[in-house]
Design a protein around this nucleic acid. Structure first.
Lengths: 214, 214
DNA sequence: CGCTAATCTAGAACAAGTTTCAGACTTGAT
DNA sequence: ATCAAGTCTGAAACTTGTTCTAGATTAGCG
């Protein structure tokens, strides 16, 4: 009865990139197929269209296996978001924003990301809803997404060594970014409104400029 | 076969306070019982503990009736939030914040609200998760909550006639407020961190001060 | 009062997320 | 090559949100 052992193995979940036992080739392939199916289904109908049975079927994996890789639908979608964020970071890195001030560059970067999301609004819906609906059991993964977002913003600011005040500003920018996305996705705010909100919050950065260069 | 008529009656849902056919006394009582049961269950286990069957049972109402009053669990929880927000607004109104600047008063007000939520973290969890998980079908209700929040913040600022820039700042403050709550509820940010975030975003208000008094 | 439309109730039925299980298949170490 | 441990599969079962139905009950009206 290896059931108990299984549970232990689960706590060393293969879902996280860092640490954990290294995946075999076939396992990595399965994981990729699952994430691909997830993104594909999400791109059609959003959060509701990502049905675990369908994900399992289109990634050619048993339902139980899907749950071994991603212990819940929210875990799956957050992992999907991590995946997409990496793509995006790569893309953004290629063409750094051109604004004069840090605030302008951050706003430009976020608007560029926003335009990318607009191209796949259903996918954006699935990922963002999962992110904000996630409970404590998904904290590590959500945190990872948050760190990745922070890196993107700091990149845009052009900082290696941000001050605490600057980090606070970045946190608030992230809050605004997530919440503004939600209001847009649920049809309560226009694209123009999101733009204004982003530009507004980015002004916070200017308040923290006075970083002495040593 | 009055089924079709039923559907029409549903679109004029009794869930919204404004307009709609006036409720009879017994209906108002049912609605109150439902909201009470919802808040009570939420106060224990949070979002997951609010199970529709249980709400129906403890409010002495058939499941079908519960769904007539609140067409989904999210609708129910958002309505619960509207309910709680009214209480809170009343409470806050009694003791206006004492800060010198608008930014200080808003920060103080939000921290006071935050402390109230800390007293019932599970209830907060249920309400906030519902709010951010809500899809388009709940937009009117979510919007109402948002308007109510705006009123509370403008109250704290002491403004009757805010400028567009000030309204933008308020929007960003609301974004930060919701998102910071979520990070706290999911255990990814400490109370101290939430405080810092609120204080940080409130500085945006100072940026918009220059409102000429006519 | 007596009617009619609307509402309420109890309970079954359905949908999708999640869990469980027995048996087949891989993997890694000996 | 073989064995033990761990994984994967297919299918059923369970949970909880949501819908549906048939028959009481209630409200408003003549």
């Amino acid at each position: 009865m290896p059931a108990e052992v299984k549970v232990e193995a689960k706590s060393a979940r293969p879902a996280a990139q860092p640490a954990s036992p290294p995946l075999t080739e076939r396992q990595a392939a399965r994981r990729r197929r699952i994430l691909h199916a997830s993104a594909q289904l999400a791109s059609r109908g959003g959060f509701d269209a990502v049905q675990m049975r369908e994900v399992a079927e289109s990634s050619q994996v048993a339902l139980g296996t899907l749950y071994r890789y991603f212990p819940s639908k929210v875990h799956l979608l957050v992992a999907t978001m991590q995946d997409q964020l990496e793509h995006m970071h790569g893309t953004l890195r290629k063409k750094p924003p051109a604004g004069d001030t840090a605030a302008e560059r951050v706003a430009e970067t976020l608007m560029r990301a926003f335009r990318a999301l607009q191209r796949e609004p259903h996918l954006a819906d699935a990922m963002v809803r999962a992110l904000t609906f996630a409970d404590r059991s998904v904290s590590p993964e959500v945190d990872q997404v948050s760190r990745q977002t922070t890196v993107i913003i700091l990149d845009a600011m052009g900082l290696d060594d941000p001050s605490p005040a600057q980090l606070s500003a970045v946190r608030v920018i992230e809050h605004t970014w997530h919440s503004a996305l939600i209001t847009w996705l649920s049809g309560r705010a226009s694209i123009a409104q999101v733009k204004i909100d982003i530009e507004t919050v980015c002004r916070l950065i200017d308040l923290t400029e006075p970083t002495e260069k040593p």
